[in-house]
Design a protein around this nucleic acid. Structure first.
Lengths: 212, 212, 212, 212
DNA sequence: GATGAATGAGTATTCATTCAT
DNA sequence: AATGAATGAATACTCATTCAT
């Protein structure tokens, strides 16, 4: 019956429960009962409930950076890279939706040492995106009027907030939403110079250009 | 010495503490000690710790809707209304930054009845913004290619996320950030038809138009 | 029925139980059950089980110093002072036998800060006795061949060890035992010069002197 | 690398740890980690943590009795026997200082059956010393005014208490301390008749006698 | 003989809430 | 209105012990 190793079983169970009721709404007892193990089994695998929370954070943020980095590496122009990074987030979302919720909702409760470990990776993610925007501005594809750092945070906010409202069973898939985000973000940043490339990546541009 | 009424003192103290350590990181005892009152004083004013959390939520969301509604009412065109609503958020931020953090961080821990009360108001806020976007699309000022509801959530995410990173002592004021957001959002939505009006509201448009 | 204040009731109950089963052999639950109160009642009065242990220590050692100091102050010669201090311990024993057992048995488990607080007082007690012996050696009443500090520890050992074997229901009272200790100790320390005074304080000396 | 047999390694490690932190301050896990073995290795050699504690007790008390008995057997007069027994304790101390601490500190936590096994040997030790004193009193070497049993406990207390304060790195060796104890004890017990023999065993007596 | 994952009863402690004063 | 002593259910965590390998 129980195929999966205990540690994994605990992690997944905890994740699901945290996602439903929040970190503080779930007791270790509930976790071990649901995961069909014992207190001992839990603490044999995790030093504390806090460490479990950290691991959930770490799994997600590590994966998110990895996917974003892959997206960055695969493409060579700022516009295509930006689109690819936005798109990469849909993959993260597919696999780790629950992690994301827990990540943004409960990170305040991580103990200090765990928190700084996470912040390092969080910053890496932000930095990657900011880089792409700066490169785009340098090359003249993106408007220079908006500061790269604030723009980065605006985009990150737009993306991250989806964890609050995205519904798996809703009318749109995460991929479709990502396409809309790409559309909005490219329109908000692109210069005349960048439009030809954008046309290939976002449908609405073509119409836009032809209309003109 | 203690000028303010007890209830207010408790609310403010709790808010500050919740903001620093999270709802679950603060006990009623800490609140009453810091607010220089007693357990009795607390429970005389609040039915439960949960109700206190609710009141914090309610104060903020009520104020946010009010300001957004004022902004809506004061202006008559979608473009100016959108700008005004974005701007209104800076006022909310100035007064209620701590509330906002608690609101987005801890709402999961509100008991069900409180949660639905809050959700009603939360939806009102969202609806107001969505209305403006739909009106703009109808009138041809905003692009119809992007769905109004997703766009609304994108904007809300962009704005709300600021509570995670905005720093009072940072280089930019909330007002300056709001101007950047206006710039980004208008560029992402506006049509050729809307540009003349946008020019008056956002600096960068003028440059944009003349360049062309 | 319950006349005594809760804190006192908990202290006495805990003391009795610790005395019987040792600090680690008694749970907070057992204490509160026996003392007819609740976990909350316990922790309202004591920060931790450790603090309770500390208080037991402190009550005893404070009383012991006080009685020894009184004995010291009441008499003026080293011989009479030594006898009085030995005698004072019987009073301490009468009132605090259980405390003593816990004190010597469990002090290793006090947390560091508590431990140093106790050690300060423990040293005071030792110092008082050592003073008396040094004074006696200076005046020529006590033999100078034995070092005062080791002699002090020998006496303290002799006295303290009684907690391991003294039996309230045994054939001898603590007072009678103290008389025997006085006898042994004076004989082990006294010089020819000191004997006249010792005669008045310990019976066996008279016989000793006349026989000669 | 690991020359010693596992059981011995565990015993020594446990002893050291118990000595530092007390029986309850050390977990089986800490023991096996420090001793570089496993839970299984532990329970293969000891039925329980309790049995390990018992073995520490037993090793020490058995050795102490053996040395005291050897001292008793080697000499034939009460005075020389008393001195030899006091001296024998220094040997025990050299080899088993940690055992002694654990013995006196933690014996309360031995389970009943183990406790009675230990008490039998403890009584043997006491009995041996009491015998010597009674013989001395019978022969007229020791004063009859003091009861043999209380005197025995006084001596045992004096000796045992050293485990609380003796410092390996202190100014005096255990042997020197034992000499002082011999001095004090003989002075406290000896009669005129016994003095000639005591002179040979304790330096200060000679001075004493000549002075007279 | 040896391992270490797993157990689960037991522990100290916290904390929102009540209520007599 | 205000106090703070008292409650007791709930919580995270420990640890001696077992057992399949």
């Amino acid at each position: 019956m129980k195929k999966k190793p205990l540690k994994e079983r605990i992690l997944e169970t905890a994740l699901r429960l945290f996602n439903e009721k929040g970190f503080h709404g779930v007791s270790v007892e509930q976790i071990v009962d649901t995961a069909q193990t014992s207190k001992g089994g839990f603490y044999h695998n995790f030093k504390s409930k806090d460490e479990l929370l950290y691991q959930i954070h770490d799994v997600f943020i590590t994966y998110a950076i990895e996917k974003a980095q892959e997206a960055y590496d695969e493409y060579k122009t700022p516009i295509s890279r930006l689109c690819a990074i936005l798109h990469s987030f849909t993959k993260v979302f597919d696999v780790y939706q629950s992690h994301i919720t827990v990540f943004y909702q409960e990170s305040i409760y991580l103990s200090n040492s765990f928190q700084s470990a996470i912040n390092v990776k969080r910053d890496q993610y932000r930095y990657l995106l900011e880089q792409v925007i700066q490169e785009g501005q340098k090359l003249g594809d993106f408007r220079k009027e908006v500061p790269a750092n604030i723009t980065t945070m605006a985009i990150i906010g737009m993306i991250n907030w989806t964890y609050k409202w995205f519904d798996q069973k809703g009318p749109l898939t995460m991929e479709e939403i990502a396409d809309i985000f790409k559309d909005l973000i490219l329109h908000s940043l692109i210069t005349e110079q960048g439009k030809p490339e954008a046309v290939k990546l976002v449908k609405s541009f073509s119409r836009n250009s032809t209309t003109r």
